[in-house]
Simulated assay, not measured.
Amino acid sequence: MSTYTPEQMLRRQKSKWMPVQAFLAPVQFVIFFFSLALIIYFIITGNGFWVANISVMVKVFVLWVMAVTGAFWEKDVFGHYAFAKEFWWEDFFSTFVLISHTLYVIGFFLKWEEMTLAYVALVAYLTYCINAYQFVRKYVVNRRKLKSHGYTIAGDIPWVSGS
């Protein structure tokens, strides 16, 4: 697992996309848990599809916003919009996350059965969990490195530290 070079850490802290990513990542995580609960409720009871569907659509929208702004962040930090060697595996698996979530939207517009859509959402959310694990794992490693280079923990979030 690669970590940031000192130059990349500096570019990371200065990227205007870092606050966007730092804000949207936990927001998306909360949406995920809320939506997952609604999907499971629908699968168990057969009720509440429309509320669950709206939650999945919101999740997909936020995911795509994160993907686009993440590409700009990656360009700022690593010089590539996607598949920089330092984030290759995260980007590789993020592709499957985007495909699985987008499949839900396509299925909705093609009028797939509600229960089928619920299971597609569960598969999409499984890919999201695996990918989130990769990012959290890398975050923990890099957080230690940031701290060892003199950044405060608040320095991980540029608008908190004023960087």
Score class of each variant (00 low, 15 high):
6 P>C: 05
7 E>W: 04
8 Q>Y: 07
9 M>N: 05
9 M>Q: 15
9 M>K: 08
10 L>W: 03
11 R>S: 07
11 R>P: 00
12 R>S: 14
13 Q>S: 15
13 Q>L: 02
17 W>L: 04
21 Q>T: 10
22 A>Q: 09
22 A>W: 06
23 F>R: 06
25 A>D: 08
27 V>M: 13
27 V>N: 04
30 V>E: 02
30 V>Y: 03
30 V>W: 04
32 F>W: 13
32 F>E: 01
32 F>K: 07
34 F>G: 10
37 A>S: 15
37 A>D: 09
38 L>C: 09
40 I>H: 04
41 Y>K: 14
46 G>V: 09
46 G>A: 10
47 N>R: 13
48 G>Q: 06
51 V>H: 03
52 A>Y: 03
53 N>A: 10
53 N>F: 00
54 I>M: 08
54 I>W: 08
54 I>K: 05
55 S>Y: 00
55 S>E: 00
57 M>G: 01
58 V>I: 15
61 F>W: 08
66 M>C: 09
67 A>W: 11
67 A>L: 13
67 A>H: 08
67 A>D: 07
69 T>Q: 06
70 G>K: 00
72 F>V: 02
74 E>R: 11
77 V>K: 00
79 G>Y: 05
80 H>F: 14
84 A>L: 12
87 F>Y: 09
88 W>N: 14
90 E>P: 01
92 F>V: 13
92 F>H: 11
95 T>H: 06
95 T>N: 06
96 F>D: 03
97 V>P: 00
97 V>N: 01
98 L>G: 07
98 L>V: 14
100 S>Y: 14
100 S>W: 12
101 H>N: 15
106 I>K: 10
107 G>R: 04
107 G>D: 09
109 F>W: 15
109 F>M: 11
112 W>R: 08
112 W>P: 00
113 E>M: 09
114 E>L: 04
115 M>Q: 06
118 A>V: 03
121 A>N: 02
123 V>G: 12
125 Y>F: 15
127 T>Y: 14
128 Y>R: 00
129 C>Q: 11
129 C>T: 12
129 C>V: 14
131 N>P: 00
134 Q>W: 11
134 Q>R: 13
135 F>C: 04
135 F>I: 15
136 V>T: 13
140 V>A: 10
142 N>I: 04
143 R>Y: 06
146 L>E: 03
147 K>P: 00
148 S>A: 14
150 G>W: 04
150 G>A: 08
152 T>I: 08
154 A>V: 06
154 A>Y: 07
156 D>P: 00
156 D>E: 13
160 V>I: 15
161 S>Q: 09
162 G>K: 07
163 S>G: 11
